[in-house]
Write a protein that binds this DNA or RNA. Structure first.
Lengths: 345, 345
DNA sequence: GTGAAAGCGCTAACAC
DNA sequence: GTGTTAGCGCTTTCAC
């Protein structure tokens, strides 16, 4: 019942001895570095194979690269994130880089700890998805290692940004609803994290755009926003709040599909038919939105391309690029059965 | 536009100098080790605070612990996994341990690479959720570091197991459907990974139990299994296959909620009402199953408790336990509107 | 109770 | 093209 003697790790020295070369030679083969003859490369590779050698990541981290890309995710429940990660994996496949994921948790403090964990583990590059920590923090991280930020709209000379044109996306939704004849259109948003960053956060942009388009159509008085969070729970609470108003909205634009799912439950509990009595739209076009029994009108932002791009930008930075890049995706509307003209009054 | 001079990391030596003590003393304070006076502890802690020191994980990994728990997840889309992780986080909160997640990908080979990545990064403990690699591989890992395996039913003296009593769960579903009057009940399962492990895999147990209960009720001839995968796509394909048979089943038991969601799409495309014409049940009782427009009958296995337990067992092993523990959860049925008596013929 | 020093496995100068 | 060697930041004997 003992865990048994953990046999000593095979090290680079063992491989060198076995192949009859120096440790330097082995190290160079490992890194595909310049300065080893083809013959030696073969011998070393054979020795690695025979001994089942695998580089010790921590030892590498002490001197060089860890061949690790760290990804910070706010949480694991939003079905849009796997789309992004699939793109990242696709971009990184074929390289020696390995992705490790940490989750940020509920507040900026927890998120900061998660970022620390990545930095402490010497990742070669970091992708922060929809981070809520202060901008100064992002720059501090970016100052120390290749960084890509996905989501927020801030410009920075220190890190690359991959983002969705949330203004276009939100406008598509609101115009779609107005085009169907709705006037009492409400919005479910997310509470901003750090107040000073609010303007750059994607949820703020979606909310502000909603307000702007409403005003442009003379619907100033119909503006109604419930500020909760982009989660099922948040969507549920937000919808409850909005449905409690009188007169109640005929359409709800949730800032994220996940929140729309929660809103769906609230609508059902209130005995309101979708889209018969209330239309509902989301954002992200997650796979579940396409599910027949949900059939949620949503905004498609290509997560796969975003993930791929983030991966490419990280690799470029690791290879030495220091100038800053900003990559923006233009979203499209995917109308489904959850939106329809408002009921005749 | 430069990334700027990455300022040198604060090291243990800096802290020692600042506090006027040795590096040994600092190290001891960091690890809450025995052999430092209270006064010295205070001085060191103050110095750490002032300098903003954070331990370098890789350097620690070279000699001692990394304070990292590695989690292997098959993929990121199954909404049941976040439940497990929430439990794990809860158990680990308050400790110095940080969780990093890697995903196994589509096949055993990719999963092996992901496990390697965790081992190479010297995690202090590893949690493998529903691994599909060979059993020998699990034991090999467990031989080198504290290991908990969540899902498979194999017994091992080398690692701890946290599992759901899938036999009970599957039986609940099938009996529920039979109790409603169904006879033509079909099942959507997952292709086993390594053939030799099949018997221990949770998806095999769910399928075998389905068969057993069907036989016990004299429904041998009605047994119909589509073996795809526990994914939306797999559920879709499985349901299409099953609905193509004649006569078609009046109920489908999908081995996972995620697969049931895919089956829902197939049912809808085929123009079949749920539960009017075909009843549908899942497994995992994910939050989305409770969604009003889905309202999926499912089996609840307490993911939070499973995650908590996995965390506790890992901590115990890290603290030195070498005997092997097996923790089993008993699931319960959550009937919802997706199951009803079969249509009158 | 405290500190000096060795060394974990690797990479990168630098010498040959 | 190849090998020698000095560390990276920490933990851990082992003296004091």
């Amino acid at each position: 019942m003992s865990t048994g003697g953990r046999r000593r790790r095979v090290t680079i020295a063992d491989v060198a001895r076995h192949a009859g070369v120096s440790t330097t030679a082995v190290s160079k083969v490992l890194r595909n570095a310049y300065g080893v003859s083809a013959a030696m490369r073969e011998r070393v590779k054979a020795a690695i194979e025979e001994l089942g050698y695998r580089p010790h990541a921590a030892a590498r981290a002490m001197r060089g690269r860890t061949y690790t890309i760290g990804v910070l995710l706010p949480e694991l429940r939003n079905p849009f994130f796997p789309d992004i990660l699939d793109g990242l994996y696709a971009q990184l496949s074929g390289t020696d880089y390995q992705v490790i994921i940490v989750t940020g948790g509920p507040d900026a403090k927890a998120e900061n700890r998660a970022i620390d964990a990545l930095v402490d583990r010497q990742v070669d590059g970091i992708l922060m998805v929809a981070p809520r920590v202060a901008r100064a923090r992002l720059e501090e991280v970016a100052c120390g290692l290749p960084t890509v930020v996905l989501g927020p709209h801030e410009k920075s000379a220190l890190y690359d940004a991959v983002l969705d044109d949330d203004e276009v996306g939100a406008e598509l939704v609101v115009r779609h609803l107005i085009g169907l004849g709705h006037r009492r259109i409400a919005h479910i948003g997310q509470r901003e994290g750090t107040p000073r960053r609010a303007a750059a956060m994607l949820h703020t942009i979606r909310a502000r755009t909603y307000e702007r388009v409403m005003r442009e159509h003379g619907l100033d008085d119909e503006i109604a926003i419930a500020t909760t969070s982009y989660s099922e729970e948040g969507g549920y609470r937000g919808a409850r709040e909005l449905l409690g108003r009188s007169p109640r909205p005929t359409a709800i634009f949730a800032g994220a599909d996940l929140a729309a799912f929660g809103a769906l439950t609230a609508l059902h509990e209130a005995g309101l038919a979708v889209p018969g009595e209330v239309s509902l739209a989301g954002y992200d076009n997650t796979r579940l939105a396409a599910l027949s029994t949900i059939s949620l009108t949503s905004v498609d932002q290509d997560g796969d391309v975003m993930g791929r791009t983030a991966g490419r930008l990280l690799l470029e930075r690791i290879e030495g690029r220091t100038s800053s890049v900003r990559f923006s995706i233009t979203p499209t509307l995917v109308p489904r059965r959850s939106t329809a003209p408002p009921p005749q009054t």
